[in-house]
């Protein structure tokens, strides 16, 4: 029955592509979380009126974030080819997509981190200072826990954007569901392959959103 409806779908290949997409999304989300958090905290602390207020650091970090956030991903991935070959040794396969995915998504996430940190009541930071807290204590015990719901909903949005980016990366040879849908589906006019790949991508996106929402709800004690 299923075979009649979807004559061209090779389930083994589809599964392999799904695993590649999950792998690319998962690993790049992890690195994006780390780098984006570092960038976002730096951006926040160096901004005017904050603990490390520093025009130079704020300006340079802000410019870096804005530039990489503005370049369309499909162009970024091409621009990064020399960097990727140097770093991963190849331009093909899921591994090769990760540097571009992280560089594309981390600045985006950094902005969201900064927005989340700005939402923290200034008084709470002042209270921590009045207790004699070091800046590192303020970062790890005040800033991050107090903005955790915003950080988690931010990484949820970013992770969903990354699923989209992996599909684009697939078109230039990174594998995954995007690659399958484009080469096996679109270019060979196999609509059923395109549809199945799309449905799987949708399921992944929905799953990420649901997990993110549950985590935020659990964490938010406000």
């Amino acid at each position: 029955m299923i075979e009649e409806l979807l004559p061209h779908v090779n389930w083994e290949k589809m599964w392999e592509a799904t695993v590649e997409t999950l792998y690319m999304t998962g690993v790049s989300t992890l690195y994006t979380f780390i780098f984006g958090l570092v960038l976002g905290v730096l951006l926040f602390l160096s901004s005017p009126g904050q603990l490390w207020k520093n025009k130079l650091v704020y300006g340079v970090t802000g410019a870096f974030v804005n530039i990489f956030r503005s370049i369309p991903f499909i162009i970024l991935i091409i621009l990064l080819i020399p960097f990727t070959t140097l770093f991963v040794g190849s331009m093909r396969g899921p591994e090769a997509a990760i540097p571009a995915l992280v560089i594309g998504a981390a600045p985006f996430y950094a902005r969201m981190v900064m927005i989340g940190l700005r939402e923290i009541d200034k008084g709470v930071i002042e209270a921590a200072r009045s207790m004699g807290a070091k800046t590192s204590t303020i970062i790890f015990k005040v800033l991050l826990p107090e903005s955790m719901p915003a950080l988690i909903s931010g990484i949820t949005v970013t992770s969903i954007a990354l699923v989209g980016y992996t599909a684009m990366a697939g078109v230039i040879g990174a594998g995954g569901l995007g690659n399958l849908a484009y080469y096996e589906g679109f270019q060979r006019s196999r609509t059923d392959v395109m549809i199945v790949a799309t449905i799987i991508i949708l399921i992944i996106v929905f799953a990420i959103q649901i997990i993110g929402d549950i985590a935020v709800k659990k964490m938010d004690k406000r």
Partner: peptide
């Protein structure tokens, strides 16, 4: 500052911590 503590108009408690954990915060510091 550990010898000169402060209370605030808007309390400035950490919402992510329970009463116990809030009181424990300066001790952690």
């Amino acid at each position: 500052r550990q010898k000169i503590s402060m209370i605030f108009q808007h309390f400035n408690l950490l919402w992510s911590r329970t009463v116990k954990q809030n009181i424990s915060f300066p001790l952690e510091i």
